[in-house]
Design a protein around this nucleic acid. Structure first.
Lengths: 195, 195
DNA sequence: ACTATTATATGTCGTCCATAATATTACAGA
DNA sequence: TCTGTAATATTATGGACGACATATAATAGT
């Protein structure tokens, strides 16, 4: 029996998933063909089905991978750093290298249950990390509130990207930072119901 | 010269744009073919180019129309009604009949400048209406703050739609209402800098 | 009935996802 | 070191559908 080193196939699959991350975020799910996705990884279309059952399978894997990577990146940053980096001009102008939610959210919403499942699981890991830092005593109750701040950030980035007026788009980002920090601030003084 | 009543062609074009609104929001821009879009209007693909220069042209027109319609709908509602309706379960579960921003935002961000221009203009009309109601004395300064609330609403609806867990998705909506109303409330007491 | 207008029916050519047949690679054992 | 064979990749092909263009038929004022 002549087997390849186990790593080879795994490494190739990993490479496909990683390059697919950028391509999908840049051109969208429907906008990215399998031939292109494979070419990005230095392969041809025929090899695709040795690694994935279908395009949907690749999308689900890629979404999961993108969220894993995002989670790791955030583990080394404070919440305020995350907010300011997320709603930065650099992030807005780098769709391919940025947040998968902002780039793909409404296509994910239209996707199959398996893709939405991958998205939900991957995002929950990120949210729960943040919730644990926000309310170490009761992270469970902070989960939904953290979702709220995250959704605000995603929506703001998307709106900023869709606006044809650059100055307005910049202002929207800045406003988003204020709003996100305000909600996080209100978050940290939990018990006192009012000011 | 034998001309049709002027309305005929206009009416057909209008019908195409209206049915395209639902189809585009349901299946996405890349996910909707011209033949399908025309069939929705009771026509065949060949007639398309008598009404539009290109698919992009239709998309821009449809985006503009959708935002016009949304603006009119909101003109009869209070800001709180708008927020509660927007972040309702009904709206989340009716992508085809709902907000074009929530359905198409990241595809619009990837679109040509003409589509983004149509989006920007249409959205600004909605935003400025709301800003005028929020701060009648100084609507200009309220514009960006209104954008912030709108972006929060859009992001929240999208996240709720993308989650595979229905209960969680419902909770996210409810949290979004709280956040939006909180930001609107903070908005209305402008001058007093703190509490 | 004439004719401009509008729609249908095709055609072109490219790309889509997926599969099958073929070629190349790289390891295992003699 | 050489070779057989399994693992992996390439090229070729299928059938469907994509945007867009043109030729033909139907429609409806004058």
């Amino acid at each position: 029996m002549a087997r390849y080193a186990k790593e080879h196939k795994q490494a190739t699959r990993r490479r496909i998933v990683e390059t697919a991350g950028s391509r999908l975020k840049r051109d969208g799910i429907d906008g990215s063909g399998i031939a292109t996705l494979m070419a990005d990884a230095g392969l041809t279309n025929g090899a695709f089905y040795a690694h994935f059952d279908s395009k949907e399978d690749l999308v689900a894997s890629t979404v999961a991978d993108q969220l894993r990577e995002q989670r790791e990146r955030y583990s080394g940053q404070s919440l305020e750093e995350i907010v300011r980096g997320y709603l930065s001009i650099q992030h807005r102008d780098d769709t391919a290298g940025g947040c998968p939610s902002a780039a793909l959210l409404d296509e994910i919403a239209r996707s199959s249950e398996s893709v939405k499942r991958a998205y939900t699981d991957g995002l929950l890991a990120i949210i729960d990390d943040a919730a644990a830092r926000l309310a170490p005593d009761d992270p469970q109750s902070a989960r939904v509130r953290t979702f709220g701040v995250f959704a605000l950030m995603v929506g703001t980035l998307q709106v900023s990207r869709a606006l044809a007026d650059r100055r307005l788009a910049d202002d929207v980002l800045e406003q988003g930072i204020q709003n996100a920090l305000a909600l996080l601030g209100a978050e940290q003084r939990i018990s006192p119901s009012s000011c």
